[in-house]
Nucleic acid binder design. Structure first.
Length: 467
RNA sequence: GUCCCCUUCGUCUAGCCCGGCCCAGGACACCGCCCUUUCACGGCGGCGACACCGGUUCAAAUCCGGUAGGGGACGCCA
């Protein structure tokens, strides 16, 4: 194990979204790549908005993606005592001070500053007050340096420098005695001995404040890597109106975890021209320095392509297991029908998602109730009747393999002077109800000769009734 | 408004640090052709970008300066 310690620290105010998942992935990847430790920490200091359901949803998403953590989950709500102690230390050392300004006053000053075009930062009213009344409610503020600069070498973005005068005395403890985010993060990352903070770049602006806190607290400052955001198709921050953002929603839409992982890792990161990465490959090749600096747009088309790829080359047995819930959802039972794994094999090259695969698999279990009229209309009834009579007559044995069936159909063609399309298509319609289906050989073998004959018979009666 | 960050095909990106191999490569999507009993898969080909303006240089996507556009942050949210 190396010294590398990284963490993913979501706040449980919603499900695990793709942006969070990618941040988690990058952390996980780097930990695995360097033999480091990946820690999961739940940032639930905002008791109001944090929910148990969200925690579960996040854990579920992480597990589905296979992003297993080495330590945790830790909950910030369990560490309130620790934060309090550190606040007191800061107060005792004069590195923090009590402030009696009310929220309303601050709000008013902020608005005024904005209006006048000034930076809306705390004006320092209580910074040097010595006459603070004991009885009044107060918050604790960090006594931040007002001169000089704070800078850090971001592993992704390079050196970033902030003039200290831009930073104000941030609140580290609220009126109700609870600590605030920026303070908790620092205390936690320090006490968990985090050596590298990999997070969304919406935190870049928090970083200088946090560095100042590390220094005030006497903690070593970790390295930072800020990963760019994921945008929607209109290049604004990805949100629900761009479609699904929840990792679990992608699972339910029939995406494979390895496909989403592969998509996410390539969003913002690259390894030359490589597109397909197994878990092991991405672990081996991942390098935080190859993460791009600019935001990227989430593109479902490419995700679909990757999903299709993983379905195509996936293990049929596993796919069958994963497919089952999507089949059941359609109120279809596989009982008494063909083996689902065999069905999967006929559909692997034809489905982009498990949902689509389930949709295409239905006909195997539910014989068609009606037929695609337009497709049927391409043949005259006499021809259809002839085909529907000729084929069952030739299907004598019960045991065929796919090439056996193909050979049989060729035979039928030669005997009757038909072209393949004149036989295959009507049979396909008889067996599946439509024209979008696997090869005839695959269907017949999967369905079995008995069921095949039954379905052709049924189609024959249907056509006969039309005459 | 202030500060911070970003800018290569429609999208994800390679190349940029260490100028010439780049009249910019790959992938998705799109279009066409081929394969084909349907739908797909697959194969081949096409379309298509260095935000802009200056500078440095024999030579710039690559270095420097500026402009524009986009994003983020500015909370007793995280």
């Amino acid at each position: 194990m190396s010294e590398l310690r990284v963490r993913f620290a979501p706040s449980p105010t919603g499900y695990l979204h793709v942006g969070g998942a990618r941040t988690a992935l990058f952390n996980w990847l780097l930990a695995r790549n360097r033999g480091g430790t990946f820690i999961l920490r739940i940032e639930d200091t905002d008791v109001e908005r944090s929910t148990k359901e969200s925690v579960n949803a996040i854990l579920e998403g992480m597990k589905w993606l296979g992003l297993e953590w080495d330590e945790g989950p830790f909950y910030q709500s369990d560490s309130f005592q620790l934060y309090k102690e550190h606040v007191q230390t800061m107060l005792d050392a004069g590195k923090a001070y009590k402030c009696c300004c009310t929220a309303a006053e601050l709000e008013a000053k902020r608005n005024l500053a904005m209006q006048e075009g000034r930076k809306p930062k705390y004006d320092g009213t209580c910074r040097d007050r010595t006459d603070l009344p004991d009885s009044q409610p107060y918050v604790v503020r960090f006594r931040a340096p007002h001169t000089g600069v704070t800078s850090f070498d971001d592993l992704i973005k390079g050196t970033i420098t902030f003039p200290n005068e831009e930073l104000d005395d941030l609140i580290i403890q609220r009126t109700d005695g609870t600590p605030t985010y920026n303070f908790c993060v620092v205390v936690d990352d320090a006490s968990m001995k985090i050596t590298m903070v990999i997070r969304g770049d919406d935190h870049v602006n928090n970083t200088p404040r946090q560095i100042q806190l590390y220094e005030a607290l006497g903690f070593p400052v970790p390295e930072f890597a800020h990963v760019p955001m994921i945008l929607g198709s209109d290049k604004t921050r990805l949100s629900k109106r761009h479609g699904a953002t929840s990792v679990i929603a992608y699972r339910d839409m029939g995406f494979l975890p390895e496909a989403l992982l592969n998509y996410l890792v390539r969003l913002g990161w690259s390894n030359g021209d490589d597109e397909i990465f197994s878990r092991d490959e991405m672990i081996k090749k991942f390098d935080i320095r190859n993460v791009g600096r600019s935001a990227s747009v989430f593109n479902t088309e490419k995700l679909l392509w990757l999903n299709a790829h993983y379905i195509k080359y996936g293990d049929p047995e596993r796919l069958a297991d994963l497919l089952l819930p999507h089949i059941s959802k359609r109120k279809v039972t596989t009982l008494g029908g063909p083996d689902l794994m065999t069905v999967v094999k006929t559909l692997q090259e034809r489905a982009q998602t498990l949902e689509e695969m389930a949709e295409r698999a239905v006909f195997y279990y539910n014989a068609p109730e009606n037929y695609d009229d337009a497709a049927l209309a391409k043949f005259d009834n006499d021809h259809l009747m002839a085909v529907f009579e000729a084929v069952p007559r030739k299907l004598t044995s019960a045991a065929y393999d796919i090439s056996g069936i193909d050979a049989l159909f060729k035979e039928i063609c030669t005997e009757n002077g038909w072209k393949m399309g004149q036989v295959g298509q009507p049979i396909r319609i008889a067996l599946s109800g439509g024209t979008q289906a696997p090869g005839i050989g695959e269907i017949v073998v999967t369905l079995g000769v008995e069921e095949t004959v039954r379905r052709i018979q049924k189609a024959r009666e249907f056509v006969a009734a039309k005459k």
